[in-house]
Design a protein around this nucleic acid. Structure first.
Ligand SMILES: NC(=O)c1ccc[n+]([C@@H]2O[C@H](COP(=O)([O-])OP(=O)(O)OC[C@H]3O[C@@H](n4cnc5c(N)ncnc54)[C@H](O)[C@@H]3O)[C@@H](O)[C@H]2O)c1
Ligand SMILES: NC(=O)c1ccc[n+]([C@@H]2O[C@H](COP(=O)([O-])OP(=O)(O)OC[C@H]3O[C@@H](n4cnc5c(N)ncnc54)[C@H](O)[C@@H]3O)[C@@H](O)[C@H]2O)c1
Lengths: 217, 217
DNA sequence: CCAATGACGTGAACAAATTCACAACGTTCC
DNA sequence: GGAACGTTGTGAATTTGTTCACGTCATTGG
């Protein structure tokens, strides 16, 4: 089974919902319950769960602890990732504290910034280095994932440097598309674009996206 | 022509690229040039531009200023939106400064926070109010769009309140899906999920997504 | 003047994602 | 015991999104 990113994205959210925002006393869940919580259709939930290799039982639904175990197995195939934040500005610093308390398998081990006043010290519990040290530290700490929080004008140049230093996955917050070689994973988060989309659907009485709840029949 | 959100999202990014990160001296652009910059195929660019009602001319390409004008026309049909940030924590504050310098048609006019130490004062140039005042100020300032930066555990409750106060579009940063009535636009930005997706494709030599450059023939 | 060029717009083919629809099957209840 | 129920897994249909392939047309150059 070749898992698509769309499915992957939903699986991560199912997991977050079930492990963080779900009453502990419930042990089982039906596709339509999860669907209602996620704002999706029940059949889509069932489709997504099909790629896990774990099967629910009719009338009982899915056992939550098992479900989470199977999602973990797919998602966290490699146990721990070292992650770097590049650009310790407002966003970079917010992400340091935010991500510290999230997945145990994703650990922020370093930050980088070219501004001397921000480097060579701890920021929000993360050691922040100068860009000069980047290549060496990325290799020493075996950092394969970077979160890019530098200005748009710097984004491509910094990306090229990260990739040359062996980074294999990048999450880009700069509001400009970056180009990477094949074999490197990229996720672009464009906040401005997202806000403009919301604004568009807020004007136009056009049918907004975002699937609504939906009984199975 | 009914414009899909996928197309819409790309149009916003074409505009950003052309207006902010593009050499001023160029007056025209070919579909394959834009494609290379965006990491998409030329035919997809042409398809997207078809819904604008503006046509390029063969051999000259698209005139950039005209192109931008037509995109503006679609995207900013209503001239100005008042936006509120709800939750003036690390992320909320970062967004205030970030968005201040972005689109002129999207103006942050208020923030809200239930923490008394954060309300009834200016933060990063934005007047921050207590949640008690929310309904009144949302209506008074005619705020139809809200950016939700409260903890996940509060997200649904706060959302319901915003919607009751007339908000028609929400951008949600809390890592939990929220439910809204039809007629309200929603954009969910789940940073954790995005990072987990990058991590997944960084392990698995699986073919990462994110379309690559691509000549037209 | 005419052929070659090179880019555009678009119908049609293709691919991906979602939804529908239903067989299968424990469970409950009479 | 057997009928009715409610939920799962999945093939098929549908919808949505992307790419291909080619007709068109202004320009260029012989
Ligand atoms: N602040 C937000 O809420 C927000 C939201 C979405 C996207 N973004 C984007 O994220 C990026 C960072 O935003 P920010 O608000 O933190 O900006 P910022 O100006 O506060 O921080 C940028 C940081 O990057 C550092 N930097 C600049 N050039 C560098 C280089 N070549 N190498 C290493 N470090 C470098 C700067 O010293 C600074 O510390 C920007 O591209 C912005 O558009 C920000
Ligand atoms: N910090 C980040 O980089 C980041 C990134 C992605 C997503 N998020 C998410 O965004 C949200 C905010 O993150 P943060 O880092 O700013 O957290 P934070 O704790 O710094 O800020 C949360 C703010 O919300 C306020 N608040 C709490 N309950 C409220 C309520 N009912 N009404 C109004 N205000 C309320 C708090 O007083 C606080 O100021 C969280 O859901 C977080 O998961 C944060």
């Amino acid at each position: 089974m070749n898992i698509s990113n769309k499915v992957l994205g939903r699986l991560t959210r199912y997991r977050a919902l079930l492990t963080e925002y779900f009453p502990k006393e419930k042990t089982h869940i039906f596709s339509h319950e999860l669907a209602a919580m996620m704002g999706l259709s029940a059949s889509q939930i069932r489709r997504d769960l099909m790629c896990l290799g774990y099967y629910g039982v009719p009338r009982y639904g899915y056992e939550i602890s098992e479900l989470v175990k199977y999602i973990n197995e797919i998602l966290d195939a490699s146990k721990l990732h070292h992650v770097a934040i590049v650009g310790a500005g407002n966003l970079g610093r917010a992400l340091m504290t935010f991500l510290e308390s999230r997945r145990a398998t994703l650990k922020i081990v370093a930050a980088f910034d070219e501004d001397p006043s921000k480097s060579n010290r701890m920021i929000n519990g993360v050691p922040c280095h100068s860009m000069d040290a980047a290549e060496e530290i990325l290799r020493r700490e075996d950092i394969r994932i970077a979160i890019l929080c530098v200005p748009g004008s710097e984004a491509q140049r910094v990306t090229d440097r990260l990739v040359r230093a062996g980074v294999k996955g990048i999450m880009n917050f700069a509001p400009v598309p970056i180009r990477i070689p094949v074999g490197v994973a990229l996720e672009e988060i464009d906040v401005t674009s997202a806000l403009e989309r919301v604004a568009f659907f807020t004007n136009n009485r056009a049918n907004a996206p975002k699937e609504r709840r939906h009984a199975d029949r």
